Amino acid sequence: MTFKLIINGKTLKGETTTEAVDAATAEKVFKQYFNDNGIDGEWTYDDATKTFTITE
């Protein structure tokens, strides 16, 4: 399955996707992406659209 990440950061904005077997696996991938890029904020997940959103 394809999961999308929408980034609404102070310095970084955009979208990316990842292929994962489930939302929990995608969450781990995206959290690592947050850490690697110094993004910290509030994030949500919409199961209907398989979209994670992080807002700094």
Rank of each mutant, 00 (worst) to 15 (best):
I39F: 14
K4P: 02
L5V: 10
K10D: 07
E42K: 08
K31W: 06
E42N: 08
T16L: 15
A48I: 10
V29I: 14
T16F: 15
T51S: 04
D22S: 05
V29G: 02
F30D: 00
T51Y: 02
T49M: 04
G38A: 11
W43G: 00
A48V: 11
D46H: 05
T11E: 09
A23S: 07
T17Y: 14
F52G: 00
T16G: 08
A23T: 04
K28W: 09
Y45V: 01
E15D: 05
A48H: 08
L5R: 00
V21K: 12
T18F: 14
T49Q: 04
I54M: 11
T55I: 06
K4T: 15
T51E: 03
N8Q: 09
T2K: 11
A23C: 11
G14R: 11
G38T: 10
V21N: 08
D46S: 05
E15Y: 14
Q32K: 12
A23K: 13
D47Q: 08
K4V: 13
A26M: 02
A24L: 08
K4M: 06
N8Y: 12
A20I: 03
T44P: 00
L12P: 02
D47P: 14
D36V: 10
A26Q: 00
D40W: 14
T18G: 03
E42Y: 11
E15H: 09
K50N: 06
F34C: 15
N8R: 12
Y33L: 13
V21L: 10
A48T: 11
T11Q: 09
K50R: 13
K13Q: 09
W43L: 14
K31P: 00
T44G: 05
K4H: 13
G9I: 15
T25P: 00
T51A: 03
G41T: 07
M1E: 12
N37G: 08
A48M: 09
T18W: 11
A26C: 02
A48S: 11
T25I: 06
T18P: 01
A48Y: 09
D22N: 07
T25E: 13
K13A: 09
T16H: 14
T17L: 06
V29C: 09
T51G: 00
T18Y: 13
T16M: 15
K31S: 05
K50P: 00
T17C: 12
I7N: 01
Y45L: 01
L12V: 11
I7S: 02
N37H: 14
T49N: 05
L12F: 14
A26G: 01
E56V: 15
T51F: 01
V21I: 12
V21M: 11
Y45H: 00
K10C: 14
T49G: 03
L12N: 08
T25A: 14
E27N: 03
N8K: 10
F30P: 00
A24C: 11
G14Q: 13
I7K: 00
N35R: 14
T2D: 06
A48N: 10
M1G: 09
I54K: 02
E27P: 00
T2S: 08
K50C: 04
W43F: 09
I6Q: 03
F3Q: 02
K4N: 05
K28F: 08
D22Q: 01
V21R: 11
D36R: 09
M1D: 10
N35K: 14
T55P: 01
E15L: 10
D46F: 02
T18D: 01
A20Q: 08
W43T: 03
A26T: 00
